[in-house]
Amino acid sequence: MEIDRNHTNNNDNILIVNNLKKYYPISRFTLGKGRAFVKAVDDVSFTIKRGTTMGLVGESGCGKTTVGRTILRLHEVTAGQVLFDGKDLAQISPRNLRKLRPQMQMIFQDPYSSLSPRLPVGEIIGEAVREHNIVPKAQYRSYILKVMNDCGLPPQYFYRYPHEFSGGQRQRVSIARAVALNPKFIICDEPVSALDVSIQAQIINLMMDLQDQFGYTYLFISHDLSVVEHISDTIGVMYLGSMMEIGDKRRVFDNPLHPYSKALLSAVPVSDPDIKTNRIILTGDIPSPVNPPSGCKFRTRCASCMSICSQKVPELKEIEDGHIVACHLYGQE
């Protein structure tokens, strides 16, 4: 059963996303108007290095989950390019896509609805392994048991059903299901937000242990900034379908440049009653993604809004090494 589960050999970019767009039509037929679209993801570009973790943060409804799903082509891509190991997932044929599937997996948010209640744990983890012929038939069961062991699941769980487990254990099963296929790239869509704090720490540690052991690349989607800060190497901040800021973790967290990132980071509650943070409280709600504001999408809630913000869409500019921001405040002479 010696299959290579270590992917850290070469250090290039595993995923390059170029101008990814995902629009959902909302009205099929409106006289006099064009079709209206929800611009869930509007022109998002980023790259992920092999063996690292990218955190994607933003408020609910900003399109971070849609980015994850569109990359895996669980939703069809409207426009743009998703280069996974040099192959464009947006254009690839279904037959070839299926061959690539084991290499990219997903861990879902809610461990209560993402596991089939009718299948025992061994089958949940092993179904896709058998389907994709990851290991020879003779080694099937010992392989699943090894994966379960890696994820901290005792072997007697093999024949048990998901309803017998707590949230933390279920999330371990979801992780085992993803890593059993020996993937290179795993999208984690809020994997710990449904769990309690003490269980959260166990799951995060497990994910980091697995990454050290097998060199997985994670795209970690979450709205919990403290978790993202802990697990990620790079951070992308999204707002209303657009990327506002990308950079190394320390650069973004220590020195956020975009006004939205500043507000978002200052809103995180600090676990110390004596520290009074200089909180920037944003007024109002996220605008509707059907009619986003012209120019910079954040201008309606921005404290340092200028006249140019409503006219021109700010482009992502590299302000300092490895720190890219889309804001008119920077890079103007």
């Binding site: 704090v197 003490s198 959260q200 720490a201 166990q202 995060i204 540690n205 980091m208 403290s226 978790v227 800060e229 802990h230 600090v270 676990s271």
Partner: peptide, 14 residues
Amino acid sequence: SKPSNKIQGNRLFS
């Protein structure tokens, strides 16, 4: 066990 700025280790306390 809360990931915070102050405790910067590789693993969280669980």
